[in-house]
Write a protein that binds this DNA or RNA. Sequence first.
DNA 1: CATTGTTTGTACCGGTTAGTTCATATTAAG
DNA 2: CTTAATATGAACTAACCGGTACAAACAATG
Lengths: 233, 233
Amino acid sequence: MMDVTDRDAEGAAAGGKGRKRDPEAVKADILSVAESEFAANGLSGARIDDIAAKTRTSKRMIYYYFGDKNGLYRMVLEEAYRKVRLEEADLHLDDLEPVEALRRLAAFTFEHHRRSESFIRMVMIENVHNGAFLGKSPNIAAVNRPAIERVAALLERGKRAGVFRPEITPLTLHWLISALSYFNVSNRHTFGAIFGPGLWSESGQAELGAECVEMVLRYVTGPLDCSDAGCLG
Amino acid sequence: MMDVTDRDAEGAAAGGKGRKRDPEAVKADILSVAESEFAANGLSGARIDDIAAKTRTSKRMIYYYFGDKNGLYRMVLEEAYRKVRLEEADLHLDDLEPVEALRRLAAFTFEHHRRSESFIRMVMIENVHNGAFLGKSPNIAAVNRPAIERVAALLERGKRAGVFRPEITPLTLHWLISALSYFNVSNRHTFGAIFGPGLWSESGQAELGAECVEMVLRYVTGPLDCSDAGCLG
DNA sequence: CATTGTTTGTACCGGTTAGTTCATATTAAG
DNA sequence: CTTAATATGAACTAACCGGTACAAACAATG
């Protein structure tokens, strides 16, 4: 049927060397379904049979390509990190003044995490497992390195311009932005159940995002820490 | 019938030397074991047989008192919230100046969350389940209300004294303190695997805690707060 | 053609696990 | 004494679930 021609075209485009068979597409299909299932139900909560049923292929192929459930989970986790960091790479912070660039970075991260719920949930689940699978994937650390380097470069520019406090470290700043943006997604259910859903309405989120930018800017900029001996720059 | 509960409570409180039966102690034992198992392995990851084996009683009694696995999980979750909020109630913020009180609240929360890992993990797991069980326990909201009221009172005092920005809301401030203190525990495995374990060494944690206090204070206090010390640039 | 890798589908296995049943016994309260 | 609640413990089951076996193709390479 027309499926054949479709798969021909797709196969050629996907780097499959003009095959009718398209292993990469099959793997991608499995990974995509597995991500939603793992993100929704956790590692032990997700069911291989459920995943298989929602793919265009069979349970047999899952084991053929990924070995076992843990192997599939690990690939899903790696892919989630890769995807998210790739999306973040499009920021051009060098075109902006340091303060404006930081404002943009914080606002972007907040918004981006908001829209990447399944990624956040994968990280949540991985932390429930004490990062056991992330620890076995050393390449994930490399994937994330650009994130901290981007912060470091921005911070250095701001310090040289005299608008950022010199004692701030890239790691702590990245930690702060991550914590706010992550918590906003990860804990909205418990926090909302206890204190009401107001912060997660459309307007509530817009305001909270703006407040987070404010938190970050006030931490990094402003007068020197008064508990230090000298208050002059 | 109230005689029963009275004498049971008396027996448990008095050490119950003569009492062979002690239902409250049995329940508490089960809950304690269940908390570590659920916190360690998640809801679907925890095993009823494992929990039973680690209690001083039997699997049969778990079902006798808690009905089923979900019922046990729910009681563990409720107890975890109750316990943590009770521990937090000992703060006496009214004795301190607003700025000093806020400093103390932030530092305390950071440290307290650090030392309540199993509570944090229960909240993580509950969020993986979209807060489904918390939503069925309306009393938990009541347990947590004092937390936000304490923040509100402190904030009001600071605003009246002119040292806190008037546009800050209690909810956002509590959200900020929670986010930083929570993320520090919840994500240390993934964050540490990617960016190194430095932030979670003893000295790293002391420094990070101090930075968090700084973040909170800088967010809440006004930009001219340091002017009397000659810090204004 | 021979070889190797890819794909499908079904049926099955063996271990695990939440939850039950039964038989029995002790204690506390009325 | 009677009754109901509180225990104990082992055997059991019914379902579930990760993983495999088997059988049979199809496709690309050399």
